[in-house]
Design a protein around this nucleic acid. Structure first.
Length: 568
RNA sequence: GGCGCGGUAGCUCAGUUGGUUAGAGCGAACGACUCAUAAUCGUUAGGUCGGGAGUUCAAAUCUCCCCCACGCCA
């Protein structure tokens, strides 16, 4: 038994996420967490909402609510959706928690103490009407190069020329439309990441087993141009973690907050503290401090590719720089994007299926199975309604669901709703040997977090059951040798139990239904032969409702039309 | 413009350090079966592995050039 710390990238607070966000981190993380727990390991699986920054403030303003209230509400909404998808977080925290405030400030104080913080005075555009400094992308005006009237402060989308906000003609705030903009001086803190470049490079170089996607992105940032740059870790905003030097005030930094990308990863740690404070566990330090028991912890992070630079460099820079025995990540599993019907999912245009809508139309397990079996591991993946329909109908209804139906109903009609008494012969021994290999392959893929391959091997295990039934044909056997047929049915019923256990990480609800119908608990089949003898003759079971009803053509067409356009 | 991941059967994808007739699932055709959600099982067809050149006894797999798609950055 080992100890595994697992974190999923924390979703941003401003609204409900689409399916791409789900398969990009939370869902595979949950798969892995469930698998490791099933294998008997000790797991701490954490996630949270990422709540600070300008987009949260703007979303709250749009909703006409104080930002703190807005975030609290949206946190609950996201927590409910996560529950709906069966995400088995040990705690779903908030980056705005008091624990994260204190820890973020403590990290900053420590980094300052060891000389890794420098102060920089820079000029930024201030909007008098908005009462705030404006990030470049929130300023628009006419491009001095091409005359395009909606050029942003960082770049003109029309002629692609890179701009400074001060280059714009008739600049205005995109938040309020205000034109009374002025340039003001403001002071910010920078983390001297460049000082840590060598240490980070050495560390990344040891990670030869990481996905190429992960290390290539890290190396690019370490080596492109002048190499890793120092990074501003503060902002002129109201909503965030107030800048402090540990617990002391930071002269000249009054009224400023830490940049969201500084405090968000620290929430991974603070979340463990929240977990303990919520009474869900004890000794959170034993998961995060190598001097307090975390030496034997394996830490795995899941995220989309856009998050990789922050997890391979910025956050490790914080951890290494602090030099206080904080746990570094052991393995980063990163994902590409899921596209929707030939294009991108678009939150702004409401294109694609959002998580709440997905749960409205179909059970979570259906989404879990399709998304996981098509996880964008090696490249971007493609969601189409046609593929989704044929895949889930085939896999979940025809291969798995129908297997459960045919064997339970056959037993009920020819024997009873109890496991019949019959022995296993050569055919059954051959199946056990075959399944022993297939289960080993499944475990190997799960251990390696090869999500698609694990799904394929699980499916092969389901198919093996149908192959067996087809070859042995108990419906024919029973006509001349009832005892032999009884053995075949007993094996078939035991297979349902086996499938329930093995499938649980992917489709926990259906798996639960299968195990409940068989009246058994979840016991991992370390010995497949023993596992297929778990249900003894006489053991009562019930015939479950169909595990999954197929998606009809009408439903598919309806949904395809409904989610193509704008979300109301 | 720079960089990154890709470009393998109709579709979605596998292909370890280069090595016998390039694989899987879906879809298709045909056949078997009839217990079951008209489900299942089997067989077959199908690819000059984006294009070109090179290295090698041997390349989807290495090198160079080009084309295409997507993404990131400036």
């Amino acid at each position: 038994m080992a100890r595994h710390l697992i974190t999923s990238a924390i979703p941003y607070i401003n609204g409900i996420k689409h399916l791409g966000n789900l398969i990009g981190s939370q869902l595979p993380a949950d798969l892995y967490a469930r698998y490791l727990r099933a294998r008997g390991h000790e797991v701490l699986f954490l996630c949270a909402t990422d709540e600070h920054g300008t987009p949260a403030e703007l979303a709250a303003a749009k909703a006409g609510k104080p930002v703190a209230d807005y975030c609290a509400e949206m946190h609950d909404v996201q927590a409910e959706i996560a529950k709906g998808f069966g995400l088995s977080f040990d705690h779903f925290g908030r980056s705005s928690s008091p624990q994260n405030h204190a820890l973020t400030q403590a990290f900053a104080g420590r980094l300052n103490e060891v000389g890794l913080i420098r102060e920089v005075t820079e000029e930024q555009v201030y909007s008098v009407t908005d009462g705030r400094f404006l990030p470049d992308r929130y300023i628009e005006g006419t491009c001095p190069n091409c005359g395009f009237d909606s050029a942003r402060g960082d770049q003109c989308d029309n002629c692609t020329k890179q701009l400074d906000p001060t280059d714009l003609i008739e600049p205005h705030s995109t938040i309020s439309g205000a034109t009374d903009l002025e340039v003001r001086e403001t002071k910010h803190l920078y983390l001297r990441q460049s000082d840590l470049r060598g240490k980070l490079q050495d560390w990344i170089n040891t990670k030869t087993d990481w996905p190429i996607l992960t290390t290539s992105i890290a190396n690019k940032w370490l080596n492109d141009g002048d190499g890793l740059q120092d990074r501003g870790i503060t902002r002129d905003l109201d909503w965030g973690v107030p800048v402090k030097d540990g617990t002391a005030d930071w002269p000249g930094m009054e009224g400023k907050v830490f940049y969201v990308w500084f405090d968000a990863p620290i929430e991974y740690i603070a979340c463990a503290q929240e977990w303990e404070d919520a009474g869900k566990g004890t000794n959170w330090q034993s998961w995060w401090r190598t001097d307090q028991g975390a030496d034997d912890v394996t830490y795995t992070q899941f995220m989309g590719k856009d998050n990789v630079p922050f997890h391979t460099l910025s956050f490790p820079a914080t951890i290494m720089g602090a030099d206080q025995n904080w746990k570094l990540v052991d393995y980063i599993k990163s994902f590409n994007y899921l596209n929707y019907d030939g294009g991108q999912f678009s939150t702004s245009r409401g294109r694609g299926v959002f998580q709440d809508q997905a749960l409205d139309i179909l059970p979570a397990d259906v989404w879990r199975w399709w998304l996981l079996s098509h996880a964008p591991e090696s490249s971007d993946a493609e969601f189409t309604w046609e593929a989704f329909q044929t895949d889930v109908n085939k896999d979940l209804a025809d291969v798995l669901g129908n297997f459960v139906s045919r064997i339970t109903k056959f037993c009920r009609s020819k024997f009873s709703e109890a496991v019949p008494d019959g022995t296993y012969g050569p055919a059954e021994e051959a199946l056990i040997a075959d399944l022993t290999d297939k289960v080993a392959a499944y475990q190997a893929h799960m251990d390696a977090i090869e999500v698609r391959k694990a799904a394929a091997s699980l499916r092969a295990i389901w198919v093996a059951g149908n192959e067996y039934l087809q070859a042995e044909a108990p419906w024919s056997t029973i006509k001349e040798d009832e005892a032999k047929a009884a053995g075949q049915v007993r094996l078939g019923l035991n297979l349902i139990q086996l499938y329930g256990v093995l499938s649980a990480p992917f489709i926990p609800t259906m798996a639960r239904t299968m195990l409940d119908a068989m009246g058994t608990d979840e016991v991992w089949p370390d010995d497949v032969g023993a596992a297929l003898n778990l249900l003894k003759p006489g053991h009562a079971f019930t015939v479950p409702e169909n595990l999954f009803s197929k998606i009809t053509d009408d439903q598919r067409e309806d949904w395809a039309a409904r989610f193509a356009g704008t979300r109301s």
